[in-house]
Design a protein around this nucleic acid. Sequence first.
DNA 1: AGACTTGTATTAGCTCAATAACACAAGTCG
DNA 2: CGACTTGTGTTATTGAGCTAATACAAGTCT
Lengths: 131, 131
Amino acid sequence: MQIHISPSDGVPIYQQIVNQIKYLVAAGRLSAGEELSPIRVLAEQLLVNPNTVARAYRELEAAGIVEKRRTAGTYVSDQGSPLARRERVKILTGRIDALLAEARHMDVALDEVIKLVQQRHATMESTRTEE
Amino acid sequence: MQIHISPSDGVPIYQQIVNQIKYLVAAGRLSAGEELSPIRVLAEQLLVNPNTVARAYRELEAAGIVEKRRTAGTYVSDQGSPLARRERVKILTGRIDALLAEARHMDVALDEVIKLVQQRHATMESTRTEE
DNA sequence: AGACTTGTATTAGCTCAATAACACAAGTCG
DNA sequence: CGACTTGTGTTATTGAGCTAATACAAGTCT
């Protein structure tokens, strides 16, 4: 499993692991049912403490990305019910509220925000095909 | 100057002060040129250390919301050039990128995101008039 | 059954952000 | 002029979050 961390680029190691695994799953490089590297193996590979990886896996489980089978390993979830849709929307809503509050402080209108959203989305999509 | 803080609701005190003053200015309850409470006065009112208020004022100055006249007090800026528009958009773009990345991880489509943005915006606007 | 591999739990140390205590510098305004 | 009020700077304390060390619990697999 190809993961790279930058020790102390400000982002906590466990968070970097979470992000990269989320990405691997989203990109289809890790498929549903597939087993992740065991905690100790990944820890040794990254030269970090097993607890740090364990924490990342715990977060991923809470996020519904993976499932842990206690003594048998950690596997990518079926993604069918990674997290109730309602929950996901709730999380996003929180982010959006913060965004809108900031936009208001900065005196940037709603139209502008939406325009930016569409624009950035388009940019992300186009660069995504290069992968 | 009416400001209320919740000691440790997770958000740092200085940040709460910053947010509320930003809000007061945005809402027009503090007009350009108006003098803010001196650091010590506000500190006593909120039962916090003057340094904490000083930090908030420093952030507000950096954000272009207020101007400090060293020994004469702190005043609301003319808001003429609070922050170059280009800068503000740049900051917002960063926030939006993070939001879209998260939405993608969660498998929530762009349409949904935009719908949520509009919906939350409407909610915020309507509750704003009740104040 | 028994060695092995899996994730779990507890505890400790370190770092850093947030806040406070206190001394300082300098303009204001009677 | 001179006391007062303003913001500034320096240092110390506290608390939370991150990582590590180490021991534990439990299913797997031959």
